[in-house]
Simulated scan of single mutants.
Amino acid sequence: MNFNKLYLKISMLAPKKTVKLISTLMEQGGFTLNPRILIGFTIYLTFFATLTVIFTTQLLSLNPTLQTLLPLATLIAIPGLLYTLIIITADNRARKIEELLPDALDIIAANIKAGMTLENAIWLAARPEFGPLRDEIKKVSADTFGGKPIEDNLQKMSERIRSETTKRAIQLIQEGIRLGGEMSKLLEEVAEDTRNTQMLKKQISTSTITYTLFIIFAATIMAPLLFSISTTYSQLSKNLAGMANTRNTGNLIQNIPFLGNNTTNTINPNDIFNFALESIIITNLLAGFIIGQIKYGKATRGLPYTPILLITSITIFLVAQQTLQILIQNLIK
């Protein structure tokens, strides 16, 4: 069975805007796979994975809340993870091109000074050490020698790279070509301007490291610790309330805040635990985006930090909760 044809048919279910967005991101990430095949595969995988989770939760007779949340989480997680992977790949590729662009512009300027035309100068600048930038230069040169205007080819190149710095540099080069300026001098100035921009970004990243550390500390350490205290306190209150029914501890229970003798209206500790876990996950997701915005000027650049933040914070939360419960049990004994 040809699964690619099946995936292509399934991809027809996706909205045109979604297909266009994924196609653009995959092109910016350097993927050679047909975007519709990936979209169809994602829909196919998500559908059967969600069905599997639904049947599994029914067989295990889990509580109704989990029977609803787990399939919903699967439905969101699989497309979300693939989309995140594409964005991270596109951003990493753009960052590599940004770092290599000034050197490539200097080589093109030197070739022009040596008497070459702009087209030949660009072609000879496609060196192996430039990696993804070399591929883009080759595409521009091939299209140019094929008869297409170089300005249009440069515009397409800027659209294939997910970088505002690169787009700005290409726009300056396009203006120079249209106005007929001295290209070698212009290219050298654009290369220097690009280097200054990169240096400025590094300085901003260094100067904002205090804010980054504070966000990491608050999201991964303080929030889990405080939530662990809340969940432990709620469990302790429930246990003491249960003891009040079998022992003469009415006065003790009465003095505990938010508990009293009426235990029918107290919040279930399991609900507090679920709320704490959900809050930690959301907090660390947002922390990753904020770190990316602060350090790199783009929220999606913080996505690689998110798994590390989530694993660390959830681990601290569970360990702290278990430690507090053991300590309290020893004290009660």
Rank of each mutant, 00 (worst) to 15 (best):
K139N: 11
K138P: 08
Q235H: 07
G250I: 00
K113H: 11
I170Q: 02
Y83T: 10
F41S: 09
L59I: 08
L331M: 07
L8V: 08
S11A: 15
D271T: 13
T220H: 03
I280L: 08
F3I: 12
T206D: 15
F217L: 12
R162C: 03
G181H: 01
Q203A: 10
S158D: 07
K5D: 12
I216N: 00
I328D: 04
T42M: 13
T312L: 12
L327P: 02
I22L: 14
L187Y: 05
R168G: 09
L70P: 12
L172V: 09
L81V: 14
L100D: 15
P149Q: 07
R134T: 06
D91G: 09
I316C: 08
S279T: 12
L154D: 01
N330W: 03
V190P: 02
T263I: 11
F130N: 01
Q322S: 02
D193S: 02
L21D: 12
F217N: 05
F41K: 14
A142F: 09
F31N: 03
A219Q: 00
T312H: 03
S313K: 04
E98F: 07
S163H: 04
W123F: 14
P257H: 11
L85T: 15
L240N: 02
R134W: 06
Q293V: 04
L6N: 15
Q58L: 13
L318W: 10
I107L: 14
A49L: 09
T56A: 13
Y44R: 02
L51N: 01
T57P: 02
L303M: 15
T32N: 13
Y83R: 11
N284Y: 00
E164I: 02
F130I: 09
L226I: 15
T68P: 01
D106R: 14
